[in-house]
Simulated assay, not measured.
Amino acid sequence: MDFPLEFVISAAVTLFVVVDPPGLVPIFIGLTDGMTRDQRRQVAVRSTFIAVIVLVLSMLIGKPLLGALGISLPAFRIAGGLLLFWTAAEMVFEKRQERKESTARQSVSQDHIENVAAFPLAVPLMAGPGAITAIILLSGQAGGDPLRLGLLFAALAIVLGICFTFYLAAIRIEKLLGITGRIVLTRLLGVILAALAVQFVADGVLAIAANGVE
């Protein structure tokens, strides 16, 4: 059995740009403002754990759930690709960060600080609609192959592990990147995500053209 290198790279890049660990750093700093180092670590651990649970469940039962609703994977791939493209456009034109910061501000005023790890940090900022869509599409591409599913889980673990690491070093990273660095990196990731989103849509259209909507 050949090692699916192309699938691994596609999965890792897609998840990284959708979750967007660098873009979450300033949000994490804002949400945990005034907390001690230990409290920030607790928030980082809890938010990462919740995001893992949400995305792993989406990976395992997302496709069967679609089948129960009568939605074909190619149709969902097209819809998901369009959603990812919208997310990419927000990143390129610097709208996504504004939306994330707005969501964060609303949550702090409505919930106590001890709940920020679950909302909005884990959901919807880490495991949001874009990430859930991407993990379902990627699990569909795995086609039930245990090796591919295992590699997809590994890619997910790595991306969320990067998030956790960034959270622990959030203040240093914020100072290192600066405002200009964060904007440039976010827009670059947005362009990459846009290209991947177009590929999702193209794959869905070709699948429907070849086999029709089941």
Rank of each mutant, 00 (worst) to 15 (best):
V108W: 06
L193G: 09
L189A: 14
T103L: 15
V92M: 06
E90G: 14
T180R: 13
E114D: 11
F93D: 11
P124H: 08
A197E: 07
V92C: 02
L149F: 06
T186S: 15
L147I: 14
P120C: 05
L176W: 15
L160I: 05
M126W: 00
G128K: 04
S139K: 01
I113Y: 10
A197G: 08
V159S: 08
S107V: 11
I136W: 01
E90T: 03
E90I: 00
F153R: 01
P124A: 07
R96E: 14
G181H: 11
F153I: 03
I173V: 11
R96P: 00
A142V: 04
T133N: 05
R187H: 01
E98V: 15
L121H: 10
G190M: 12
V108E: 08
V159P: 02
Q199H: 13
T186Y: 03
A195V: 12
A142D: 00
I158Q: 06
L160A: 07
T103H: 09
G178Q: 13
F153V: 02
L176E: 09
V108K: 13
A170K: 04
I132L: 08
F119I: 14
L189W: 09
R105A: 14
S107Y: 08
A127W: 05
R96A: 15
L125E: 07
L160W: 07
R99I: 07
A134D: 08
Q199R: 14
A170S: 13
E98N: 01
G181N: 11
T133R: 10
Q106T: 08
F153H: 02
K175L: 14
I132G: 08
T103C: 08
L185K: 01
G181E: 11
I158F: 15
S107M: 11
R187L: 02
L137A: 10
E114C: 05
G181C: 10
A170L: 07
G178R: 12
I171D: 15
P120K: 02
V123P: 03
G144Q: 04
R172P: 03
L160M: 06
L160Y: 09
G150L: 02
